[in-house]
Write a protein that binds this DNA or RNA. Sequence first.
DNA 1: ACTGAAAGGTAAAAGGG
DNA 2: CCCTTTTACCTTTCAGT
Lengths: 153, 153
Amino acid sequence: MIDNLDKVILRTLMDNARVSYADIAKNNRVSPATVHVRVEKMRKAGIIKGAKLKVDPRKLGFDVTCFIGIILKQAGDYPRALAKLEALSEVTEAFYTTGQYSIFIKVVVRNIDDLQRLLIERIQAIDEIQSTDTLISLQNPIMRDVGLDALGH
Amino acid sequence: MIDNLDKVILRTLMDNARVSYADIAKNNRVSPATVHVRVEKMRKAGIIKGAKLKVDPRKLGFDVTCFIGIILKQAGDYPRALAKLEALSEVTEAFYTTGQYSIFIKVVVRNIDDLQRLLIERIQAIDEIQSTDTLISLQNPIMRDVGLDALGH
DNA sequence: ACTGAAAGGTAAAAGGG
DNA sequence: CCCTTTTACCTTTCAGT
């Protein structure tokens, strides 16, 4: 399914998506064409979903990151609530979860005032939402990709 | 600080980091060299932190994503606990937070059995940790970058 | 399934307005 | 601050093994 060369290619590009296929080829003693073929294979298999530029939100003026656990009035309200959350650009991630919350979201905003307005005027204003719990992140000391070492084959 | 062209470049590359500078230049009626200069400027300013390949963890056999809220025995235990969490490759993100938890982490594992072992044998075994709450993610319907539209300049 | 070579395209640096 | 030019390198395709 996925061999050692695939893993090295993935690891390299997950770390820096702009490393040239030629460099990867050189380091692994294969031709650039082979690297190209492997990448295309993994893209078609859905393993590779794209390449994203990583930006620092703080450098752009988004200083506050927080997580919000959402309790819905009824379980069936999930699709409607999600659609309304998706319309808010400040909501960067959403998860449908087990446990006390139905939906768990990550929001990135400029400052605490913006967070307060977002919470009160736009999130708690959503009909389907019963209540929310907010967790403000002060630091983000770990942010990395899944380790491929646990991959067996 | 950051003008309209910078914003268009960021938006384009945040979506697809492999779009060529030549294409971006064409769409904005500037030269490829200008795009190159802008990207370098933003890299030096720390706005651009790199380009990452986006992979689908499920396609690689990591089927379970979850969040774990961690309560420490003492607030001062934070650095030691964090270092121990960092040593676990399954911990892909960590946040230092206000509220009921001191540390909030995201973990990605192969299955529920692995999650259970990780939790009991490696996380709850950390001396500095008093207790944990786990939130299993069943779906991840929203995963996107910060919207640049709120950016003033 | 990998390689080597060819064609076209791209990045990055240099120089000028 | 942006442009054009230039050079070297890169991706991608395809025939051959």
